[in-house]
Amino acid sequence: MVEQKAWKINGFIGILVVFVLIGVTIYSFVLEQIVLGVILATITAILASGIRVVQPNEARAVIFFGNYIGSVRESGLWLIVPLSIDRKISLRVRNFNSKTLKVNDIDGNPIEIATVVVFRVVDSAKAVFDVDDYEEFVEIQSETALRHVATGYPYDTFDEEGYSLRGNSQEVADELCHELQDRLAIAGVEVMEARLTHLAYATEIASAMLQRQQATAILAARQKIVEGAVGMSQMAIEQLQQDGIVELDEERKVAMINNIMVAIISDRGAQPIINTGSLY
């Protein structure tokens, strides 16, 4: 099914014609021309059945004896094909908030995830005739697409390589939007945006994964501290030798580097030992 324009004329002209026919019909009955009056009354009723009011951001798919003959998108009062029926379709932008789903990521970890989908109908014929209920279709396909995308990524990456649900939310949202558009095109629906609204580890593994994240952060911080300590030790020895303050042999260099590394890397504050010399 492809949307097409339905035949229509200004509804006020149609109402004017209907009132004229009503007057002529009454006049025919007054003159006792019963047959003519019945014919005119029938024509008036048939013509009046084609008057429709279309609201802004609304479409009406017109069906004439089982055949789709077009849609009316322009708002206002219109006279369409008499004896036809129509299906009203909203063209407004709408949101769909999915339920919080429990799925497994690509590593098999159970996670909780939810999304919001911004969509609108762009083809009234597809929305009416190609699916039973396009709103229910959007709901089911959105959750199906979300499950499919979520199983293709890990929740988080600890080696800073590859995409993850937490670290690459924009890329995941773009893929989800494309996935939804492919699925909902059959229903005449345009997906304007899709975003994750909830993302978390499932309750049964949340504490363990939190400890893993904390350990990863501690290791990364330790690595930075060690790199800084090595640089500071090297700079201190070079400065001492350059200024000629003290002559350091290899053994004393090792001892100084050891003391500086311990003072910087240790979790606790360093306790200095002052050498005051011998009392005797």
Rank of each mutant, 00 (worst) to 15 (best):
V93Q: 08
G76F: 15
F96V: 10
F137C: 11
A145R: 04
F158N: 03
I80N: 07
Q141I: 11
W78N: 03
V118Y: 13
L83E: 15
D132S: 06
G167C: 01
V131E: 15
I106G: 07
A145Q: 07
I80G: 11
I113R: 03
P82D: 00
N95P: 14
D132Q: 11
F137H: 04
L83H: 10
K126H: 13
E143C: 07
D123R: 01
R92H: 00
V103F: 05
I111L: 10
K102D: 06
Y163V: 13
A127N: 08
V121Q: 10
R73C: 12
E112D: 08
A125D: 04
L165E: 01
D133K: 05
D105P: 14
F96I: 09
N104T: 15
F158V: 08
F119Y: 15
A114I: 03
N109C: 00
Y155V: 10
I140R: 06
E112H: 15
I89P: 10
V128L: 09
S90H: 09
P154R: 04
A114C: 15
I85D: 09
P110S: 05
Y134N: 12
Y153S: 00
N97E: 14
A145C: 13
V93H: 03
K99E: 12
Q141F: 06
S71E: 04
L91G: 04
N168K: 09
K99G: 05
V118P: 00
L91R: 13
G152L: 02
V103L: 14
S71P: 04
H148L: 00
L77N: 13
L83T: 13
V117E: 08
H148E: 15
V103S: 02
A127V: 08
I111Y: 13
E139V: 10
S75I: 13
G152A: 02
F137K: 05
